Simulated assay, not measured.
Amino acid sequence: MSDKNGFHSGELAVQKCAGEAAIAARNISVLTDTVIAGARPFIAKQSMVVLSSIDRSGAVWASVLFGASGFLHTDTGATISIDVPLKERDPNDPLWTNIGHHTDLGMLFLELSSRRRYRVNGNVQRLDADGVEVQIREAYPNCPKYIQRRQLRKLGETRLPVSSACGTLLGGTAETIVRQADTLFVASRYADTGADASHRGGTPGFIQVVDESTLRIPDYVGNSLFNTLGNFSVDPRAGLCVIDFEHGQLLQLTGKAKVLWDQQGTADATGGTMRVWEFKVDAWILRDTPQELEWEYFDASPFNPSEKL
C-alpha cells in the first residue's frame, strides 16, 4: 500500500520517526517512471553498475558489474539494457541465478569521480545470451554526499573463472575488507515495489564490526525519502557489497538489517541523526573481479563525519 506520493508504509513510518515527512514529500518530486533525457547519456558512459537481486529463498544480494562504456544504455528511457554476454558472467555471482527466477532488479548508476548517481528500479523482461533488458518502474537522481572520489584508470578484459571463497562468519580477508572500507553498497526490497540498490560511504572504519556475524553502520543525513530504511522496516532481508579497490575483490554479504533509533553517544559518528542499523550476516561470498581494475583515489567526501561508531 502506497500513499499519494508513492511512499509505502515502511517509508512513511521511518519518515515520521525521523521527523522528516514534510521534507520527503517535497523531495519525491524528482521521481519519474522513465529515465529522464538528461540522464540517458550519463548511464551510457558508465563502466560500473550496482544491482540488487533476490534469490530463490528470498535472500537479497548486492552485486557490482563492470564493463566498457556503452555496456549500459537506454534509448527511450522506458527500458535499460545491460550488455553482459553469457561467456562473461561470473557463475559465482548470485545475480545471474537470481534474475533467472525473480525479475525484480534494483540498479544504481554511480560515477565515483564526479559523485553523480542515478537510481532505477524495475523488472527484468529479457534475459538471454546477449544480456539483460529491464523495464523501468521508477527512477530518480540521488545527492552526491558521502561518495569518495575515485577514477577507474584501467578496465581489463574479462577473465573467467576467478578465485572465490564463501562462508557464514566474518574473519580473515573478509573482515579486513569490511574494516577498511569507505564505500558500501546496500540492497533491499519491498514486495510491492521491488528491489532497490543504494550507496553508503564514510571514512575508513565507518562500518563497525561488532562480532563475527554483526555489522553496525551509521545512518547519516540524506534525502529524507528513507527508501532503504523503509524497506528494512517491512522486510529486514538485505544484501551488502564492498569493493576492495586495492586488490580487485568483491565481498558480497546477505543477511538481515535492523534500524536502531536514538543511540546515545553516537551524535558525532552519525552526523547528528543518532541512527544506526545493524546487519546480521547469514552468508558471504568473496571473489576476484572478473576484470583487472586499476583505481586512482582522489579525495574523501567533505560530508563524512570525522568520528566513528
Rank of each mutant, 00 (worst) to 15 (best):
G167M: 10
H199P: 08
R89W: 12
Y190S: 13
E307W: 03
Q135E: 11
V132T: 12
W284T: 03
L105G: 07
A39N: 06
R89N: 00
H8D: 15
F232Y: 15
L250S: 06
V49Y: 07
G201V: 12
E296L: 11
A22H: 13
L170P: 01
S47K: 09
I207V: 15
L127W: 00
Y118H: 00
D130S: 15
P305V: 05
N5C: 12
T34G: 03
G167L: 05
E296W: 02
D182L: 12
K145L: 08
F303W: 10
R159A: 11
S213M: 11
F206R: 00
A24Y: 01
G100K: 02
H8S: 08
H8Y: 06
E133T: 12
N227G: 00
S113V: 01
S2F: 03
D299S: 04
G131A: 00
P85R: 14
E212N: 14
F42D: 00
T158S: 03
P218Y: 02
R149F: 11
L127N: 01
S114C: 08
F71W: 07
G239D: 06
D75G: 10
I136L: 08
F7S: 01
D55L: 03
I82N: 02
R40Q: 14
H102C: 12
M107W: 02
A39S: 14
L155G: 04
D93V: 06
R89H: 07
H247Y: 13
G167C: 02
K256Q: 15
Q125V: 10
H8F: 15
V124G: 04
M274F: 04
N92M: 08
A44H: 10
P290R: 09
D244V: 02
T32K: 05
Q291G: 09
G230I: 14
P161G: 07
G248Y: 09
L251W: 00
A13D: 15
T103Q: 12
S69G: 08
T103G: 00
A267T: 04
V221G: 05
S233V: 14
T103L: 08
C143R: 14
F109P: 00
D244P: 01
F109N: 02
V234L: 15
G239W: 01
N92E: 12
T193Y: 09
S233Y: 11
H73P: 03
T193M: 14
L31D: 07
D262Q: 15
A39V: 10
I217D: 02
F66N: 04
